[in-house]
């Protein structure tokens, strides 16, 4: 690792792109060590030669991916292509059969991560008050009570949301519960924040609000975010890059950049650039979804 060479390409001219996956020349594929040398500048998460099958069905076989640092990347693709499987493998929720996933060259165990689940009702601990839910990951890290309180208070202050933090989760609304989930994930100041369809259990009004809130969090912290979305509008609006996946065995279909200025608003949705990117993503998606 000491003589690891990075092929520096100016970031402006070459946005981080995934390394092209080897097509069918498995025996000609370079060794893992060689492939690890090739990744664009400003990469945060590197996935190399990832393999995963579920009961004989191959989902990932030699999958390579680079996720840029300090950007929001959305994962989008046909049903059952393994969007959630991908972020669950990267975040360590489910094991993978082979390959390597590194964060800045570190393993998952050496990396602080946060994870926001789709089902906030089942992700929170209903026997704890909202505030204790937020405290919990810090408690697991062994942070002393006074320091925990200080950090949680700071986080609550930065969020500035009208939530009764002494309430139990089931006494809160859906949007409030998901906000608590996001706060619980952020309180450890994660290097990477994973979001698995964070809005899909919310109504449209709440989705707009949460989308906005997430953008604000991103602008304040610049945390690398990896989000699975089943809604192309959410995916493009919020992201710097949309990762489009093929049907299984899953490969990268496209890695589309969207660099509209932030803060993005409802007006962004009607800007030509947004419309163009969304249209392109949809075309790729339709091509991939109708295959076979």
């Amino acid at each position: 690792m000491a003589e690891l060479r990075v092929f520096a390409i100016p970031a402006e001219t070459a946005p981080p792109a995934p390394v092209p996956a080897p097509a069918d020349a498995a025996n000609e594929a370079p060794s893992l060590e060689e492939r690890l040398r090739w990744f664009p500048l400003n990469t945060h998460i590197t996935v190399r030669g990832l393999r995963k099958s579920f009961g004989g069905t191959v989902i990932y076989d030699g999958f390579d991916l680079d996720i840029p640092r300090g950007k929001i990347t959305s994962v989008f693709g046909p049903n059952g292509c393994g969007k959630s499987t991908l972020i669950n493998m990267i975040s360590g929720l489910i094991p993978y059969d082979g390959g390597e996933i590194l964060f800045d060259g570190k393993t998952l165990a050496e990396t602080r991560i946060g994870y926001v689940f789709q089902n906030y009702r089942e992700a929170l601990f209903p026997w704890m008050r909202a505030i204790d839910n937020i405290h919990y990951p810090l408690k697991l890290m062994g942070v002393p009570k006074a320091e925990r309180t200080r950090r949680v208070e700071k986080l609550i202050e930065s969020f500035d949301v009208p939530i009764d933090f002494n309430a139990y989760p089931y006494q809160l609304s859906g949007g409030q519960m998901q906000t608590i989930c996001i706060m619980r994930a952020l309180v450890v100041e994660p290097e990477v924040l994973f979001l698995d369809e964070p809005f899909s259990a919310l109504d449209y009004e709440m989705t707009l609000l949460m989308r906005d809130r997430l953008q604000r969090i991103y602008q304040e912290r610049g945390t690398t975010m990896l989000m699975v979305s089943h809604n192309l509008e959410d995916a493009v609006w919020l992201s710097d890059h949309v990762l489009l996946l093929t049907r299984k065995p899953t490969r990268v279909a496209d890695f589309v950049a969207f660099d509209a200025a932030r803060p993005r608003s409802a007006d962004t949705l009607s800007e030509p650039d947004f419309v163009r990117v969304q249209k392109h993503c949809l075309e790729v998606f339709q091509r991939e979804a109708s295959l076979r």
């Binding site: 975040s91 360590g92 929720l93 991560i113 994870y115 689940f117 089902n119 089942e122 992700a123 929170l124 601990f125 026997w127 919990y136 990951p137 697991l140 890290m141 619980r184 450890v188 994973f194």
Partner: peptide, 25 residues
């Protein structure tokens, strides 16, 4: 609930902590 166990896992709870803080409840 699987999600709750996964939530504990992703926050870094070990087996004993998961048992005490999640499974028991």
């Amino acid at each position: 609930r699987q999600t709750r166990l996964l939530a504990a896992k992703v926050m870094g709870a070990n087996k004993l902590q998961t048992l005490r803080d999640v499974m028991f409840w």
